[in-house]
């Protein structure tokens, strides 16, 4: 488990009023943007539980939209994002729901543009977040590390094939999580790394037999 550092305590510089409901919302939007990679044309946010109830007063809706449009947690433009030229080319809407199965501060983000994508995430406290789902895959992305997400066929040797490529690039792995739907079915690998990766490694991984999908998600600045 990652322990708090000095910077965690005396930072971040952020737009208020709440680390979980405002800064966390911006970071969820921003990490969704890193995952989506291109400019979204349409976004539907569904806010759950506390996010739904107190979201307007905390600017959670503004934070989510600002994040997905690329603004950072300390950007003063978040407050007026709905009336800003930054948001005029995106069609956005918000739904508010209760669901006791979901985290108290939770959101679904449906993005449309050059592709459709569904992303779920939670704001887990003190501005920290977790993206929990991308399309049909369960993931766990904090945005604190550069991360490689791989979907592949569950079979022997896949982890070592990938980690060998990282070793050859002298890239250190901070954490590695594997999961699968069932034996021999679709599996996912989430690798957090300590240094940025060049794009040729990603295409090398894509070329491994029975790898279906690879994406590289850059970490959040702060």
């Amino acid at each position: 488990m990652k322990k708090s550092t000095l910077f965690d305590i005396i930072l971040p510089v952020m737009v208020g009023p709440s680390s979980s409901h405002t800064a966390g919302a911006v970071r969820l939007g921003l990490l969704a943007r890193h995952i989506y990679k291109t400019e979204p044309k349409k976004v539907i946010f569904t806010l759950y539980n506390s996010y739904a109830h107190t979201g307007t007063g905390h600017g959670t809706d503004k934070g989510l939209l600002a994040g997905i449009l690329g603004l950072g947690v300390d950007d003063r433009r978040i407050k007026d994002i709905f009336n800003s030229s930054i948001s005029k080319n995106v069609d956005y809407s918000f739904n508010y729901e209760d669901n006791f199965r979901r985290h108290p501060n939770s959101v679904d983000i449906e993005i449309d543009g050059d592709k459709k994508m569904f992303i779920s995430g939670d704001s887990v406290g003190a501005g920290n977040i977790l993206i929990t789902q991308i399309n049909e895959f369960k993931v766990s992305l904090s945005g604190n590390y550069d991360t490689i997400i791989i979907v592949y066929k569950d079979k022997p040797g896949m982890v070592s094939a990938v980690t060998k490529m990282l070793q050859d690039e002298n890239v250190n792995i901070a954490s590695l999580d594997c999961d699968r739907n069932a034996k021999g079915q679709d599996a996912s690998m989430i690798i957090c790394i300590d240094s940025p990766l060049n794009s040729t490694v990603i295409s090398d991984i894509e070329n491994i037999k029975d790898v279906y999908f690879v994406t590289y998600v850059e970490k959040l600045g702060i």
Binding site: I10, L11, P12, V13, M14, G16, S19, G127
Partner: peptide
């Protein structure tokens, strides 16, 4: 008050106690 009007503050350690 800058915090609650969505101004820029330093969460130290949290926004509510900034």
């Amino acid at each position: 008050e800058e915090n609650i009007r969505m101004g820029k503050i330093v969460a130290c350690p949290t926004a509510g106690s900034c």
